[in-house]
Each structure stands twice: as structure tokens, then as C-alpha cells.
């Protein structure tokens, strides 16, 4: 029985990007299916953050095609905003809005960008804050929360928009070690719910547990893609081996 093929969630086809003369993304080919969990890793400067920032057009690619949920990313501002409403992002520096409460942070975009009415937006916000186990802080300001709590609020805020894809740009790198676990647990729960996720991270334990495929990038190129077991135990490329040996000493 043939099923109609759904378009991949994210599709990179020959994508290049330069910062001046520096080739930050070099001939990227990557297909990510709906429901897949991808972990992107690599040394700093390898272009992994730039890669996922291209997915919601925070960065523009210069050559090649990039399709998100079937929509080609280019040009028109209105179209980009629509794509962004379907793609959620969690930043390394949390980037919560400090002048709004936790609840207001979560309801801002649904009310003002998606024309949801206030009651519905707040109900959904509470439900998601409950899910990331921070609903009791709903009326506090971000400045009063710890790093781990802020990052969980950031995850809830992104989820309030009902995204089809979630991007995570080194979500635990700015956290104190004791708070990393609470955020990772939240992300694991999200993965188990079937969300399409692209995660840039150094947390290899998370990759082993949750990832469907691990992407290794170096100097702007994708060096190796493999499921976690083969990736960690038998990497095919020399560069991957070197990186892993530095990481897992």
C-alpha cells in the first residue's frame, strides 16, 4: 500500500552562506522528516548555529534552496513571518522579555501574531507552563527566576505558538551545571511527544537518548550523518573521531 509521501519538514539543497569571504555554510544537503529528532554537533565556528538559524530565517542563505514545511524560504517578509509561526526557537541566552511576566511572555505572540483571544491564549499558556512544571511562577518577572527556570519558560513560550518544528540553539550552554538536567528532561519529554526537533548541543547523553540522527559539522560542511549508536561507537570519518575523542575524554 503506497502512502503519499509527506514533504520533509526541513530540506536543505546545496545551501551556501558566506560572511564576507568566510565560507560559513558549504554545500549543505540535509533532509529532516516530520517527527525526526536531529542533533547537530561540532566544534565552535563549524556553522551549526548558523545552520539552524537559517531554518527560521534569522540568517539568510546565499545560494541553494531551503524549504521548511514545503515552503521555499526567500524574500517576502509576510511569508517569512508565517513560516516563523510554525517554527519555534529556544536560544542559548533565553531571550525572555524582561518587562513582561512569564505568562505575558507566553501569551504575547499568540495574541498579537496569531489573533488568538486572550482567554484561550492564557489557557494554553497555563497548560504548557504546567507541562514544563513552572506554572506556579506565571506571574513573576524573568529577572526573578533562575537560569534553568527561564529556559523552561522559553520552551513554553515557543510551544504556545503550536509550532510544527522546534529549534534549539545550545539551550543548556549558558546554564549552571545543576540546572542542565531540568531543561534536558523537558526536552526529552517534548521529543517523546513526537515533536520535530533540531537541537544544536554538546550534551551527548541527550543525543544518545533522544536523537534519530546525529549530524556532525566542521568548517561549514556536514561531515557525517548517522544514527546515534553507529555515530558514537563507529564513526566513519577521521574528523568525527577526533572531535569525539576530545569530547568524551
Amino acid at each position: 500500500m503506497t502512502q503519499p509521501r509527506k514533504p520533509p519538514a526541513v530540506e536543505f539543497a546545496g545551501v551556501h552562506k558566506w560572511y564576507g569571504a568566510f565560507h560559513v555554510l558549504s554545500d549543505i544537503h540535509l533532509h529532516i522528516e516530520t517527527g525526526e529528532r536531529i542533533v547537530v554537533c561540532g566544534p565552535s565556528g563549524s556553522g551549526k548555529s548558523t545552520l539552524i538559524r537559517c531554518v527560521n530565517r534569522l540568517e539568510e542563505h546565499h545560494r541553494g534552496a531551503l524549504r521548511v514545511n514545503g515552503v521555499e524560504l526567500s524574500g517576502a517578509e509576510a511569508q517569512i513571518d508565517r513560516v516563523r509561526r510554525e517554527v519555534g526557537m529556544v536560544f542559548q541566552q533565553f531571550n525572555l522579555f524582561p518587562h513582561l511576566t512569564v505568562l505575558q511572555n507566553c501569551t504575547l505572540a499568540p495574541i498579537w501574531a496569531s489573533a488568538t483571544n486572550r482567554r484561550e491564549a492564557e489557557a494554553r499558556a497555563f497548560a504548557l507552563l504546567e507541562k514544563v512544571r513552572i506554572a506556579d511562577q506565571a506571574h513573576k518577572y524573568p529577572g526573578a527566576l533562575s537560569g534553568g527556570q527561564q529556559q523552561r519558560v522559553a520552551i513554553a513560550r515557543a510551544l504556545c505558538m503550536n509550532p510544527k518544528i522546534m529549534l534549539f540553539d545550545e539551550p543548556t550552554s549558558a546554564l549552571d551545571p545543576e540546572m542542565v538536567k531540568e531543561v534536558l528532561d523537558t526536552m526529552v519529554a517534548l521529543a517523546e511527544d513526537g515533536m520535530t526537533m533540531i537541537v544544536v548541543t554538546h550534551e551527548m547523553g541527550f543525543a544518545r537518548r533522544v536523537a534519530d540522527r546525529v549530524v556532525f559539522m566542521d568548517h561549514g560542511e556536514i561531515v557525517e550523518i548517522a544514527p546515534p549508536e553507529p555515530f558514537f561507537s563507529a564513526p566513519r570519518q577521521e574528523r568525527t573521531r577526533q572531535f569525539l575523542s576530545q569530547l568524551l575524554h
Partner: peptide, 8 residues
Amino acid sequence: EAAQALGL
């Protein structure tokens, strides 16, 4: 960036 990522 956060505001843009939310689609505002």
C-alpha cells in the same frame, strides 16, 4: 531575534 522567532 526572540520576537522574530515567534513570528511577530
